[in-house]
Design a protein around this nucleic acid. Structure first.
Lengths: 241, 241
DNA sequence: AAGTGGTCTAGACCACCCA
DNA sequence: GGGTGGTCTAGACCACTTT
């Protein structure tokens, strides 16, 4: 299995950082050393280091080297595109997924708008998946996913209970490229009250997510509605001067 | 004033995109064309395009070119490091800043922990700034900033009412490199109730921000506490395969 | 086949840090 | 002054899209 050289270097170094071979506050080997170790050019080494830097693992300091940054164990993968399955695997708590709906149909006005489908368009079908996420016996997250039906297939209840993303990227070979997220706090809807264990909570955290493929086409809109006590968002942002 | 070539190209193209010279869904000139236009090498052109791509302005598509992506006018600068001043300038609403505290002292246990200062350390001073932000006559955001005092100077009430960031980057020449953010929803504290117009709101959105300089040293911890109806966070995240 | 972006190379000069 | 990362070059080959 051949890979891009810079990705091999990236993954190598990442593993070494996670294994503590390069502890926090220590310096990675210099770009010249790495260039020798991997029998490659300096620009290729730099590509790997730039990726590590973008993902918050190292900081490059002029005249000194690349320092390993501290990482909080609980950080979710850097700023998003995080699915419930990944999250659940990290947290390792008791949990369950209830599939409340799974259907393919002509979407409502509101969903058409979110997916940039023309209002007059009555041909484009959208697959809707609604799931309640249960953690430690309480239903605390309501996930409402809307997919362009033409792009997906084989979406069964089984798949929806596990990980849709795995299905998309693994089985269907779709390549997710980027996403736009918006986080707000709203009043719970009737649906929220019915589907979740809201107890005494008066608010709900809403994450709206627009997901795009490699060819820049929008193909998914997701609304993830969290009970406030079960919401946490971690972000790493670099300033591009 | 000489600049890096790739930044010149980046800013040029960005301006052209914002001016509509390259409308949404159109393709930028190809890398070969740009290389000619700017009398430079292709790798340098690619560096500029990569920046545009990271910041969510374009999507590069293999075999086709660089497509201009749609942008919501209201997007704040991509995922963060947004200061209240920037935000206020965008929104253009009536607003005011009340400086509630400004002092330099040995910090509390809790703040020491946030700024990675040793518990036994009684020498390191921290400058605390507490500000309430008023929008349309209501105090809706409480900003609590803690700076390593040795790194800053000349922080007056005047400066605090305007933009501390401008002071840091402009006047002091500090170079902010990256930040880690955590967003959660909590119960309001006594301080929140006293300093803000919470009306009937039962929750408060808390953004904890750890800001680092170019040399990877932590120098600021900020807690920004928003009334839920006045909170909105927008994020653009690329998937690095 | 021609054009596009993706990767890689071997070298160069510069700005910065440190002994 | 020697080592570090930051920028830039002129070329090469590849994978993909389009005609």
């Amino acid at each position: 299995m051949m890979q891009n050289k810079y990705l091999v270097i990236y993954q190598d170094l990442l593993e070494q950082i996670e294994d503590g071979i390069h502890p926090v506050d220590s310096y990675l080997p210099s770009e010249n050393e790495l260039k020798g170790q991997y029998q490659t050019s300096r620009e290729t080494v730099r590509k790997a280091l730039t990726l590590l830097s973008q993902n918050g693992y190292i900081q490059k300091v002029r005249g000194k080297g690349s320092v390993v940054l501290p990482r909080n164990k609980f950080d979710f993968p850097v700023s998003g595109l995080v699915s419930f399955k990944e999250l659940r695997d990290k947290l390792g708590e008791d949990n369950k997924t209830h599939v409340l709906a799974l259907e393919t149909a002509v979407p409502s006005r509101h969903i058409k708008k979110q997916l940039m489908i023309d209002d007059d368009d009555t041909d484009t079908l959208v697959t809707t998946v609604i799931r309640a996420r249960e953690i430690n016996g309480e239903k605390v997250i309501l996930d409402k996913d809307y997919f362009l039906a033409e792009k997906i297939s084989g979406l069964t209840e089984q798949v929806a209970e596990d990980s849709i993303y795995q299905h998309l990227e693994g089985t269907l070979g779709l390549s997710i490229s980027f996403a736009k997220k918006e986080i707000t706090v709203e009043d719970p809807t009737e649906e929220d009250r019915e589907s979740l264990d809201l107890d005494g909570f008066h608010n709900i955290v809403v994450i709206k997510n627009y997901v795009y493929l490699d060819d820049a086409t929008l193909f998914q809109y997701t609304e993830s509605r969290h009970r406030p006590d079960r919401f946490r968002f971690v972000d790493f942002a670099r300033r591009h001067h």
